[in-house]
Nucleic acid binder design. Structure first.
Lengths: 140, 140
DNA sequence: GCGAAATTCATACTTTTGGCCGATGCGCGT
DNA sequence: ACGCGCATCGGCCAAAAGTATGAATTTCGC
């Protein structure tokens, strides 16, 4: 962990150096500052995403055994791709509001999806949907 | 997806605007450009991490084979016998009313038990309680 | 390209759930 | 006897979840 942080520090330093260089180049050619700032923003956003995923990855990979999904059963329910995403998040214990935030849609949309999932899984509560989906082997 | 990208675009635009403002402030006070750039970098790294985490889907851990209950974890939660029964029925997808019928108690009692279970599992929704309990291996 | 399916969103309504209070009775150990 | 945890119940309120309906877009298979 200490090593990891150190690595990131060095990488950051290197990047700052690179930026200085780019900055020099750009300023020489009289390219507007806004453009340069935008470039920096995009670069570091990308770095942030990358770093974020790197640092959190070890936590999520905890698969104990092979989960074989019953594709047939899933298809039979008629659950769409988006609806399945919602179902996964429901099973993860998220609220409609949280799901909306995660999927970048409105609360209304999530409710629609949830309602569809409930109907397709023959359930009237999300907890029942989870139980049914598990029984049918369409979610781990 | 298009919407997602659009959202980011708008968010970016807004942030650039904010940056312009900050920039103005800083330049007025003759603070070096490097500092400003660094600020931008840090900000957008943070944004990137946030976005990355937001986009990461929660991986559901799976339990295969014989279920061996983590007695220690269960004891640690302080969940009582009756509360555990309720928890099992929650996980089975029953409503409070149904649980009340199954355990021959009133709806109020079930609600009390549910509330206690939620508190002891550090959850605020029954679905979250299920997910947590599964992670802690106190229910199959 | 056309049409069906999928995705998105809103509004209004009912039901369920959860939080917070207090209260009673019962058994158990000191 | 007293305190303590557990189980039981009720009321009230707010938030979340679910239902129904309608509609605008987008996507995708043919």
């Amino acid at each position: 962990m200490r090593r990891t942080i150190l690595s990131y520090g060095i990488a950051m330093a290197a990047l700052i150096g690179l930026l200085k260089f780019v900055e020099y180049k750009f300023l020489i050619r009289d390219i507007p500052l806004e453009f340069y700032i935008g470039l920096v923003a995009v670069m570091f956003t990308a770095i942030g995403i990358w770093a974020g995923l790197r640092l959190t990855r070890p936590k999520v990979i905890e698969i104990t055994g092979p989960f074989e999904q019953n594709e047939a059963a899933l298809k039979e329910t008629g659950i769409s791709k988006r609806e399945y995403e919602v179902l996964e998040l429901i099973a993860a214990g998220l609220s409609n509001q949280e799901i909306a935030g995660r999927l970048f849609v409105s609360n209304s949309t999530v409710k629609t999806h949830v309602s569809n999932v409930l109907a397709k899984l023959d359930a009237s509560r999300r907890t029942e949907a989870i139980a049914n989906a598990k029984k049918m082997r369409i979610i781990p």
